[in-house]
Design a protein around this nucleic acid. Structure first.
Lengths: 150, 150
DNA sequence: TTTTTAAATCAATCTCATCCATGTGAATCC
DNA sequence: GGATTCACATGGATGAGATTGATTTAAAAA
């Protein structure tokens, strides 16, 4: 994980479809060299996958919500496979604080969000925060040390 | 936005680096046809960008946190440009409930997270939830109607 | 019916990715 | 010190993929 790897990763973060040749030009190494480095980054799990950021509103999912869940420890085994299987959920984290899980999800309507909440209430108490507007769209983390304030 | 566009979008979501040729095979149309459709999807803003999912732990950002902020309406104008400028922040949403903003962010240490929280407290009261573990990693939304429960 | 438009195909060209043989420099061992 | 090894980079060749332009088709508008 040297300077060049960092350059590859940070460039790919912003444009996952860039060609190896352009990456090679940016990094001042040959295209085959970029190719082997990329493979290693994937093998080592530093690069997990390549995703496309979509406007979910246009595709019929205008409702984004953060659902917090007070999950009792005994239900964890049942909860994890369940939450993975729900296609509306794009992330789920176990966190500190009084609510143990934060679920980020998208829905076609408030009604289907309501159905979801009713369904997961068997795992514990919930709190739902619906998104009005987004000021920072899901974006890559800034890796350049100079540009991070903290 | 027909069946083929949906197929293109949902395929790209899972693998943004797939070749146009493979996309063409999957959609049963020619490669140039995929190319023009892709351009249109980008122009219309349905596809925003292509991102690479990185293991931030390995790159020195082991701390993920959700920071909730009770932002007073008068401070909004100052807050939005500020929060955009912080490279540690990967998303920020205005939500319903007693806290008006949910900020998702990554840090090198709890100390730098602490610095960040101290900094944004000038905008209002905060609540921080640090991520212990992740059961559903940031993933694309399931667009196939058959696979969505809600 | 005719015209227009949008979008597809095909063939040709050009760009790009990959493979393989070769070369280079740093660390290790005799 | 000189030889060996290993990791990694390069360069050229080959094959795969992207793009362009000309043409065709089909559906909607006049």
């Amino acid at each position: 994980m040297d300077e060049i790897d960092l350059k590859i990763v940070s460039t790919l973060q912003k444009d996952a479809r860039i060609s190896l040749k352009k990456l090679a030009d940016i990094c001042f190494i040959s295209a085959p060299a970029v190719s082997t480095r990329l493979s290693h980054l994937e093998e080592r799990g530093i690069i997990n996958n390549y995703q496309t950021a979509i406007d979910y509103k246009v595709l019929g999912f205008p409702i984004k919500a953060y659902v917090s869940l007070r999950l009792s420890p005994t239900d964890k085994e049942a909860f994890y496979p369940y939450i993975k299987s729900v296609g509306n959920v794009i992330s789920c984290d176990c966190v500190t604080g009084s609510y143990s899980q934060i679920i980020t999800c998208y829905f076609k309507s408030t009604k289907s969000l309501d159905n979801f909440i009713n369904d997961i209430q068997r795992f514990g108490e919930t709190k739902t925060q619906i998104v009005f507007s987004t000021s920072v769209d899901p974006r890559p983390l800034e890796l350049n040390p100079g540009k991070n304030y903290f």
